[in-house]
Design a protein around this nucleic acid. Structure first.
Lengths: 347, 347
DNA sequence: TTGAAAGCGCTAACAA
DNA sequence: TTGTTAGCGCTTTCAA
């Protein structure tokens, strides 16, 4: 690989000059410029990003921490992150923590500040103290999807009003006339799914329903998890006419369970999720869900991070430590319907 | 961020010594060692990976080029790649080419050799000349999933016998008694899906069937693509009893189309795909498919790449330029069944 | 066993 | 407009 000074030698100038033309920093004579460009071309020169990073005191990558990139939601997000990151010349390093905070810490310690200029966190299974520590050591961190806009996490974040999402889902079901509604809630009791369920509960309370509390199951955030939970729910109370899940994947699983138990969705049972992942559009029937502004969140997270990276260099305070995305929105598709008078036919 | 020499100063030694203890290179007195370790601890020192990379002349990352990480197949693969990469201390940079060879080239030029020590290519939409060029500039490249073991691509690769996969799928259908079989083939005519279809055709030929040729559609490698193609196929020839798709996603789409047209899968129509993505297990009915050794391919790709990275340093020739994974295997699930005598009931 | 010194490829003052 | 020089943080001979 040719280096700057080889290019310089060939062009009969010094590396400083080559550097200047490469960065378009002006103050270079047109003729010299041409010569340099020719040399670059002839040698097929490409700048050494690691060297540049070292000299500039900044790294050209952002780290994206996820529990597992294989979760169907993350890739969509990662794609958006990558696109935004590219705009500021950053590459993105995927860090799978595998839901293990030890692994997460290991990643942070190795990457932060050296290889990556900033850290994006897409799951809550990292130790917040670790995150604060890396922040204090000079590498900005932003949480990509904070679920409670009203309750700042003590770290920069982009917040999505998931409580509202839950409420919208609940309301939709109520408007369709459902009374007996089961709920499938993400597995970590005090975890990120609490606000979603709280919103759902709000909707129930607002309209004077109480029955919902009996029919609640926790399940891992997967199709299989939702399947198992829905089965339990439905076997325990076959009179349920709707199921609310705090996430699309379990909602999809619930549809399968319903089918296996002889319920027709949406005729006998309505199912609603939250997020609007790609798959939600592609299930049969397509899933009614509350869409969360994923792409917007990704963009915001990257620009917030970028701001945090750049501000200190300019001696300014960041303008805000929390961005709030636009609100979640109900997307009515085929998996919900107004409750039929005759209720279920079979089972 | 503390630096090596700060640690050194605090421990009353030079940076060379600190470096030695950190790399466990021995030749350091036990007492000094302790002092250094304490200083490291006290200062909370972490090595600067970019600086180390520069000094060592090697980068700590691998680039994974994919057309779009959002394709449901890639994340599973990416996860496996990341795990393997970590074993040799590499981080993985995700490069979404977006199926655009210009974007791909841009990535290669920026990353290869500087930020990344090697390049993994997970789609064929990169210009092979670009790949060869980066290889010649000193950055090893490996194709992660070459479809024709018998026909080396002129680049290091790990090959999967996709023709066999196609054949297994075809045979399975034939063994179930199917005669009229439709095929959905990936959209790029001469592209990566050709061997899969060729294998399918082999199976047909071997058993003297010819009808298949009429019922073939090209479709993008998505659920929607498969849906549209299957609809066409089925509307054109409702007597089809089976559909073979060169990939799971379109196969899943075909199942949806079948359902929409009143075909029951598998009673009226069998559907089979290739790959065995996670989703295949989670569809209704679960998809019969030919499983491809994804994880194994990921591991092989990373170790081949690692070997290519290290060999030249040791002056050796790489042992092989092509690894072949174990063979694809039929996974029978719920979407295929022996052809019923009465054929379809409805439609 | 430890230190001194050069250098990886680049940037960025500052001088000329 | 261009060159000189001094690093960025680390590794690695080679000496001591």
């Amino acid at each position: 690989m040719p280096t700057l000074s080889e290019v310089a030698r060939r062009a009969g100038v010094t590396s400083a000059t080559v550097s200047n033309v490469l960065r378009n920093r002006g103050r270079v004579g047109e003729e010299t410029r041409q010569r340099v460009l020719e040399a670059v071309e002839a040698l097929n020169y490409r700048p050494h990003l690691a060297a540049r990073a070292l000299a500039e005191g900044r790294a050209p990558t952002l780290a994206l921490m996820v529990s597992s990139i294989a979760n169907p939601f993350y890739p969509e997000f990662a794609l958006a992150v990558e696109r935004s990151a590219r705009e500021s010349g950053h590459f993105v390093i995927i860090c799978n923590t595998n839901d293990d905070s030890i692994a997460g810490r290991a990643y942070l310690e190795q990457i932060a500040g050296n290889l990556s200029e900033g850290v994006l966190v897409m799951n809550a299974n990292l130790d917040f103290d670790d995150l604060r520590a890396t922040q204090e050591r000079g590498t900005p961190v932003v949480l990509c999807m904070w679920e409670r806009p009203g309750d700042p996490p003590g770290l920069p974040c982009v917040a999505v009003d998931f409580r509202l999402a839950g409420r919208l889902a609940g309301r939709h079901l109520i408007e369709l006339g459902h009374e007996r509604i089961g709920a499938i809630v993400g597995s970590k009791p005090s975890g990120i799914h609490a606000p979603r369920y709280a919103g759902f509960a709000d909707a129930m309370r607002e309209t004077g329903r109480k029955a919902y509390a009996k029919s609640k199951r926790h399940a891992p955030d997967t199709i299989a998890g939702g399947y198992a939970a829905a089965r339990e729910l439905l076997e325990r109370d076959p009179a349920l006419t709707a199921i609310f899940a705090t996430n699309d994947l379990p909602a999809l699983g619930a549809m399968h369970a319903a089918a296996d138990l002889g319920f027709d969705v949406p005729r006998d049972l309505s199912v609603i999720g939250i997020t609007d992942i790609q798959l939600a559009r592609e299930s049969r029937p397509p899933l009614t869900t509350v869409a969360v502004p994923t792409i917007e969140a990704a963009r915001m997270a990257v620009s917030l991070l970028r701001e945090l990276i750049e501000r200190p260099a300019r001696g300014e305070e960041p303008s805000a430590l929390m961005c709030v995305t636009s609100s979640p929105e109900l997307v009515v598709r085929g998996s919900t319907r107004s409750v039929s008078k005759k209720k279920r036919k079979e089972s």
